[in-house]
Computed example of a mutant assay.
Amino acid sequence: MTKPTRVRVLLLSPAKRILLIKYRNTGPTGIPQPCWTTAGGGRKSGETIEQTALREIAEETCMTDIRLGPVVWYGEDRHRSGAWKTLFQEHFIVAFAAHEKIDQARWTEHEREQIIETRWWTLDDLRTSSEAIYPFNLADRLEPILRGEYPSEIIKLPRI
């Protein structure tokens, strides 16, 4: 398996809602292709998946009282990067937040330019939305995790 360059975090609240972030997703063409995705981002040299997850959550939400769960999925995605055509190689890790309060104080300049909105979603919200949400079929993939059912091995998501 290719060494993933990014970590996505399935950040779950006590109300069993998942945090998604809506990105402007403006590539080299300058045309926005907004989409929702989980918290997370690039791995720094020498970081573990867990270290990246905790750092990214702290940067994107200011939450530091996070309990990590298992790594459940691996995916490769070129679709989400729009005109940049970047191949995202990502591990997805489960994490549990103590609350749903988000603070933007640690956002980078890039995040301030690209993030449109943050929102906690229920499974029903995910299923009824007509917006672009990554990974695809998130509600169906997330449902067993919300029940505490984790795969025995990391599941490889279909490449998009």
Rank of each mutant, 00 (worst) to 15 (best):
Ile160Gly: 13
Gln51Asn: 13
Arg67Asn: 14
Ile49Arg: 08
Arg67Gln: 15
Glu131Gly: 08
Arg159Glu: 12
Arg80Gly: 05
Ala105Leu: 10
Arg43Ser: 06
Ala98Pro: 09
Leu126Glu: 02
Leu123Gly: 01
Gly41Trp: 00
His110Lys: 14
Pro14Gly: 10
Asp140Val: 07
Arg119Thr: 10
Glu117Tyr: 11
Gly69Gln: 07
Glu153Asp: 13
Gln89Asn: 14
Leu126Tyr: 02
Ile57Asn: 01
Asp77His: 06
Leu146Cys: 04
Pro14Asp: 08
Thr38Lys: 00
Leu10Ile: 12
Ile102Pro: 02
Arg141Leu: 10
Phe96His: 13
Pro158Asp: 07
Glu131Lys: 11
Thr122Asp: 01
Leu87Lys: 09
Ile145Asp: 01
Thr38Val: 11
Ala97Asp: 02
Leu126Ser: 01
Ile31Asn: 12
Leu68Gly: 03
His99Lys: 13
Pro4Asn: 07
Glu149Lys: 13
Gly30Arg: 08
Thr128Leu: 10
Leu157Ala: 01
Ile93Phe: 00
Leu68Thr: 03
Lys44Asp: 10
Glu100Leu: 05
Arg127Ile: 09
Trp120Lys: 04
Ala132Gln: 13
Gly82Ala: 05
Ala132Trp: 14
His79Ser: 15
Val94Cys: 04
Pro135Lys: 01
Trp36Gln: 03
Arg17Phe: 00
Glu56Gln: 11
Leu123Gln: 04
Thr2Phe: 13
Ser129Glu: 02
Glu56Thr: 05
Glu111Met: 15
Thr26Val: 08
Thr37Ala: 15
Lys22Ala: 07
Glu76His: 09
Arg67Ser: 14
Ile21Met: 11
Leu68Asp: 04
Gly40Thr: 03
Glu153Arg: 12
Pro70Thr: 11
Gly148Gln: 05
Val72Trp: 01
Thr26Ile: 06
His99Glu: 11
Gly82Ser: 07
Ile93Met: 04
Ile18Tyr: 01
Ala83Gln: 07
Pro158Leu: 09
Phe92Cys: 04
Thr64Ser: 12
Val9Arg: 00
Ile116His: 08
Glu143Thr: 11
Leu12Pro: 01
Ile31Trp: 09
Ile57Gly: 00
Met1Thr: 13
Glu131Pro: 07
Glu76Arg: 10
Thr108Asp: 08
Ser129Gln: 05
Thr37Ser: 15
Gly148Asn: 09
Ile145Phe: 04
Leu12Asn: 00
Leu146Thr: 06
Asn137His: 14
Ser81Arg: 06
Arg6Leu: 10
Gly46Met: 08
Phe96Gly: 02
Arg80Glu: 12
Gln114Arg: 11
Glu117Trp: 08
Phe92Ser: 02
Ala139Ile: 06
Ser130Tyr: 11
Gln89Ala: 12
Leu19Gly: 02
Asp124Leu: 11
Lys101Arg: 14
Glu109Phe: 10
Leu146Tyr: 05
Asp125Pro: 03
Gly148Trp: 03
Thr52Leu: 04
Trp120Gly: 03
